[in-house]
């Protein structure tokens, strides 16, 4: 029994990281994904900010799931999410102004990130707080991984650094395109390609092994 529930919890956690990865599989939250992943640091901050909002709001939504009437649930979710976004906004200002400037309006725009509302509506409002938060944690980890994947490549090629640490020495030739919006699209496309190729390969392998299990 406890084994079963443990695997279930693990499944909930892994769902967002691999099977339903918000960036690579569901292609959600593309606006911040493309806009702020100029550097790994920005990507990480954005990811963590989103993670905080996601986990907190999912927890709160889940707590209130039985007392909030259906008619006003979306309004409630939005208020809750907006609250945590505001909190994050203040927190980042307090921690580092540089990061705050780099992320710009995209912190406030976390409110309309469909990952969060989607999770609140589709998962948190139907599950107990613990499950909801584990799932949200997995999702946000998946999102952080996605952003980091983009941010790392773009920073390494676009500036020759990683988290601000120079990798290639002073004479590095930066690839300007990588820190421009087109670079975001190109790198995202490349990652999506890689992911879907991997997925396809896996499915083919499963189909070969399981014989028709691959549906």
């Amino acid at each position: 029994m406890s084994d079963l529930s443990q695997t279930r919890t693990f499944d909930e956690f892994m769902e967002g990281i691999w099977r339903q990865n918000p960036v690579f599989v569901m292609v959600l939250g593309m606006c911040p994904t493309l806009a702020v992943t100029v550097s790994a640091m920005n990507a990480l901050s954005m990811g963590l900010a989103t993670a905080f909002v996601l986990v907190c709001s999912c927890g709160l939504v889940s707590l209130m799931r039985n007392i909030v009437p259906k008619e006003v649930r979306i309004a409630t979710y939005i208020v809750i999410i907006a609250t945590f976004v505001t909190v994050v906004d203040y927190a980042i200002q307090a921690v580092s102004l540089a990061v705050y400037d780099a992320l710009g309006a995209f912190i406030q725009l976390i409110v309309v990130n469909c990952i969060i509302l989607g999770r609140a509506e589709a998962h948190a409002s139907k599950h107990p707080p613990a499950t909801a938060m584990v799932n949200a944690l997995g999702m946000s980890l998946g999102f952080v991984i996605g952003l980091l994947a983009l941010g790392t490549v773009r920073e390494v090629l676009g500036a020759g650094t990683l988290f601000g640490v120079s990798l290639f020495g002073a004479n590095f030739q930066p690839w300007v395109v990588m820190v421009l919006p087109p670079g975001g699209f190109i790198v995202l496309g490349a990652w999506l390609l890689l992911f879907s190729t991997l997925k396809q390969r896996k499915e083919v392998r499963l189909a070969e092994q399981g014989g028709g299990h691959g549906a």
Binding site: I67, P69, T76, T83, V87, Y90, A94, L97
Partner: peptide, 30 residues
């Protein structure tokens, strides 16, 4: 409905005010 929304708003308002107070000095200094 009004009651629920009111409660939620109040809770959220409290959280925001708390966060604002807590970070104001640090942000201004920054």
């Amino acid at each position: 409905l009004v009651k629920t929304l009111g409660i939620v708003s109040a809770v959220c308002g409290l959280i925001i005010v708390g966060a604002y107070q807590g970070t104001y000095d640090a942000a201004a200094a920054n």
